[in-house]
Measured scan of single mutants.
Amino acid sequence: NITNLCPFDEVFNATRFASVYAWNRKRISNCVADYSVLYNFAPFFAFKCYGVSPTKLNDLCFTNVYADSFVIRGNEVSQIAPGQTGNIADYNYKLPDDFTGCVIAWNSNKLDSKVGGNYNYLYRLFRKSNLKPFERDISTEIYQAGNKPCNGVAGFNCYFPLRSYGFRPTYGVGHQPYRVVVLSFELLHAPATVCGPKKST
């Protein structure tokens, strides 16, 4: 009989979020998941679920829940969905086509923008091939755009693969920082350890 609540607040209220190319993952297990707390949290810009209804989450049990978190621009949030393409979905964070879970995003301009620009948040701009679902690539190898080998030196046709967002408070909404948490639900042939409040007695 599990009684402790799942530590969703640790994920959602973290002081610093990860850059999207180096997205953070927390495994959540052996706890009671009260999703209504999240669902009623006012400032969400997006709360979209795939393969599961957000209002039914509290009735369900899962083997594991993974909480992935990172920061992207407002106009990139739409790429955090199954079957998407674009710089983020291709080179930074890719969801599987059969994704079961929820994508939760909110504007973090007050936290993550600075006058003069916040350059701490990076994304991958160049990559030889697209990421596989949930693949994480933190390499900083110089990207070779031409035929000539770069030998690890940036220059003509040789690019550092990461780019900084440089968030400023005055940017338009599409270019403002958004914090994103992706909850993915794993249902294995194993005992369920993460259940909603109704199922955990």
Rank of each mutant, 00 (worst) to 15 (best):
N1A: 01
N1M: 09
I2A: 01
I2Q: 01
I2G: 11
T3Y: 14
N4R: 04
N4P: 07
N4I: 03
N4E: 07
L5G: 01
L5I: 06
L5D: 08
P7K: 03
P7I: 08
P7C: 10
D9W: 09
D9I: 03
E10T: 04
E10Q: 08
E10L: 06
A14Q: 04
T15P: 05
T15N: 14
R16K: 13
R16S: 06
R16W: 11
A18G: 08
A18S: 09
S19P: 07
V20I: 01
A22T: 10
W23Y: 00
N24V: 00
K26H: 10
K26A: 00
R27Y: 12
I28Y: 15
S29P: 15
S29V: 09
S29E: 02
N30S: 05
N30H: 04
V32K: 08
V32D: 07
A33M: 14
A33S: 11
A33L: 10
A33F: 01
D34L: 00
Y35T: 07
S36G: 01
V37Y: 09
V37T: 01
V37L: 14
L38M: 07
Y39P: 11
Y39M: 12
Y39T: 15
Y39F: 08
N40S: 12
N40T: 00
F41W: 10
A42V: 09
P43H: 12
P43D: 09
P43Q: 07
P43R: 07
F44N: 03
F44C: 08
F45E: 11
F45R: 05
F45I: 10
A46S: 10
A46M: 12
A46W: 15
F47T: 06
G51N: 03
S53A: 06
S53T: 15
S53C: 07
P54I: 09
P54F: 04
P54T: 11
P54S: 09
P54D: 04
P54Y: 14
T55V: 07
T55Y: 03
T55L: 08
K56A: 14
K56T: 13
N58P: 12
N58D: 11
D59E: 04
D59S: 12
L60G: 15
L60V: 11
L60N: 00
T63N: 07
T63V: 14
N64T: 06
N64L: 10
N64P: 05
N64D: 15
V65C: 07
V65L: 01
Y66H: 11
I72V: 06
R73K: 03
G74E: 01
G74K: 04
N75A: 02
N75K: 01
N75L: 09
G83C: 01
G83N: 05
G83F: 12
Q84M: 04
T85A: 08
N87H: 02
D97K: 10
D97H: 10
D97F: 03
T100M: 10
T100Y: 15
I104V: 05
W106F: 10
W106M: 12
N107A: 09
N109T: 04
N109C: 04
K110A: 11
K110C: 14
K110N: 05
L111S: 05
L111V: 09
K114F: 00
V115K: 00
V115T: 06
V115Y: 00
V115F: 00
V115S: 00
G116H: 00
G116D: 11
G117M: 00
G117S: 03
G117H: 00
N118Q: 04
N118H: 00
N118T: 05
N118E: 06
N118G: 01
N118R: 00
Y119L: 01
Y119I: 06
N120E: 10
Y121I: 14
L122Q: 01
L122E: 06
L125H: 02
L125F: 03
L125I: 09
F126Y: 14
K128H: 02
S129E: 05
S129A: 05
N130V: 03
N130Y: 02
N130S: 15
N130P: 05
K132G: 02
P133A: 04
F134C: 01
F134E: 05
E135H: 10
E135Q: 03
I138H: 13
I138S: 04
S139N: 08
S139K: 06
T140Q: 10
T140P: 01
E141L: 09
E141H: 11
E141A: 11
E141T: 08
E141N: 09
I142W: 02
I142E: 05
I142K: 04
Y143A: 13
Y143S: 02
Q144P: 04
Q144E: 07
Q144R: 03
A145I: 06
A145P: 00
A145L: 07
A145S: 15
G146Q: 15
N147M: 11
N147V: 15
K148F: 10
K148N: 11
K148E: 03
K148R: 09
K148Q: 12
P149A: 15
P149Q: 08
P149S: 06
G152M: 11
G152L: 06
G152R: 01
G152Y: 00
V153F: 04
V153Q: 12
V153P: 14
V153A: 15
A154S: 14
A154R: 09
A154F: 13
G155S: 11
G155T: 15
G155W: 11
G155Q: 15
G155A: 05
F156P: 11
N157C: 14
N157H: 08
F160K: 15
F160I: 14
F160D: 10
R163F: 00
R163Q: 03
S164T: 06
G166R: 10
G166M: 10
G166L: 09
R168T: 01
T170W: 00
T170N: 02
T170S: 07
V173R: 10
G174P: 01
G174H: 06
G174S: 14
G174F: 04
Y178I: 14
Y178F: 04
S184R: 07
S184Y: 15
S184M: 07
E186H: 11
E186K: 14
L187H: 13
L187R: 07
L187K: 10
L188F: 03
L188A: 15
A190R: 14
A190V: 02
P191M: 05
P191C: 12
A192K: 10
A192C: 02
T193F: 14
T193H: 13
T193M: 05
T193D: 03
V194K: 05
V194P: 03
G196D: 14
P197S: 02
P197T: 10
P197R: 12
K198C: 11
K198E: 08
K198V: 09
K198Y: 05
K199E: 10
S200Y: 05
S200D: 14
S200P: 14
S200T: 06
S200N: 10
T201D: 09
T201E: 06
T201A: 10
